[in-house]
């Protein structure tokens, strides 16, 4: 097991109270596994991704533990996390286009970043050049400023930088959404090749576009309103989803297995509950066609078959 997350809760502090954006996540990612994380906008995907590497100012760690390669990650301790960042957990942020300092040459920035982490730029440089070539960039990008690169080039450059120290876990947050269809495909393929080359051991690919996951992800985790709904191998999620939300999500896609890049998660009537004072019981209840009395209690996220976990009273065979 590469990553194990258990009962992780992270809230946003606001004047009105706590926004329960991540409310008890328990799952694991195996070595070599690329896990897709999908769900409607605002369901807490970025919150989950960020809490594995860096909580920003307004995020409040509430409970839970994270273990990576047998080491417990002090996710609540900003300074304590520093030694794990980049080397063990790394991120390709949602804002990859603006992630590089605009007034530094890219090579200079990488050198300063590496040296500040106690790594030798000189030793890493040959590998850096190899990877720059691998993603189809020219060696001279290092002597350019970010402004001189196109969006897709910046994206690839950030992908190379983030994975330079061969992290065990890479979090890629919405890295395809700002790109056109053909670039999206290239980026997805690059992610897979990074795993195949062993640059990263396992990966969490966050997206609200499930179709991008079909050819990228080994497993898919579906979130709904701050909670985990279902996790299973990609094939199972597509062919035999158990959670009503997942089913509606998948059937709202025109044709399974075919890429519909512009197909977003929409078309499910109603909208997710506010996370400031979320309803008790199953959070999907208000929109669920199968809801029944028992759903006033919160369904546990449990394994119903090997590698297949669901949080729904109807999904467990005994109740079905």
């Amino acid at each position: 097991m590469s990553l194990q997350v258990s009962d992780l809760r992270v809230y946003y502090r606001t004047l009105a109270g706590d926004v329960q954006a991540l409310d008890g996540a328990t799952f694991s990612i195996a070595d070599k596994e690329i896990m897709g994380l999908a769900g409607e906008s605002g369901c807490g995907k970025s919150t989950l991704g960020n809490s594995l590497i860096r909580l920003d100012g307004r995020m409040k760690y509430v409970a839970g533990s994270v273990t990576l390669d047998g080491n417990s990650l002090p996710v609540w301790d900003n300074d304590g996390m520093n030694e794990f960042r980049f080397r063990d957990v790394s991120v390709i942020p949602q804002y990859a286009m603006s992630a590089m300092n605009p007034t530094r040459k890219i090579g200079t920035m990488i050198a300063e970043l590496l040296e500040s982490r106690g790594e030798s730029y000189k030793e890493i440089r040959p590998e850096l050049m190899r990877r720059i070539d691998l993603v189809g960039l020219q060696p001279d990008v290092l002597s350019r400023y970010p402004i001189e690169l196109s969006g897709g080039m910046k994206q690839r450059m950030v992908m190379v930088i983030s994975t330079l120290l061969d992290p065990s876990l890479l979090i890629a947050d919405e890295i395809t959404s700002a790109l056109d269809v053909s670039t999206q495909r290239a980026v997805a393929e690059t992610l897979v090749s990074f795993r195949d080359h062993g640059f990263v051991k396992s990966m969490m690919v966050i997206t609200h576009d499930v179709s991008i996951l079909y050819q990228t992800a080994d497993t898919i985790l579906i979130m709904y309103a701050g909670k985990l709904a279902e996790k299973a191998p990609t094939k199972t999620i597509i062919e035999d989803p158990r959670h009503p939300y997942t089913r509606m999500l998948i059937s709202s896609l025109p044709e399974v297995g075919v890429r519909y890049a512009n197909k977003k998660l929409s078309g499910i009537p109603g909208s997710p509950p506010a996370l400031l004072n979320p309803p008790t019981g199953c959070r999907f209840r208000a929109r669920c066609p199968l809801a029944f009395d028992k759903c006033a209690e919160e369904p546990p996220f449990i394994e119903i078959a090997g590698d297949h976990s669901v949080a729904c009273w109807k999904a467990t065979r005994a109740d079905a």
């Binding site: 860096r54 991120v91 942020p93 603006s98």
Partner: peptide, 25 residues
């Protein structure tokens, strides 16, 4: 609070480097 500062922080860069960049810019 800009993106490049957040990125550096996410990659574990020390405050010194982040401040230096922020000051220059």
């Amino acid at each position: 609070e800009s993106d490049y500062s957040r990125y550096l922080a996410a990659l574990g860069a020390p405050q010194g480097l982040i401040r230096k960049y922020a000051f220059r810019n």
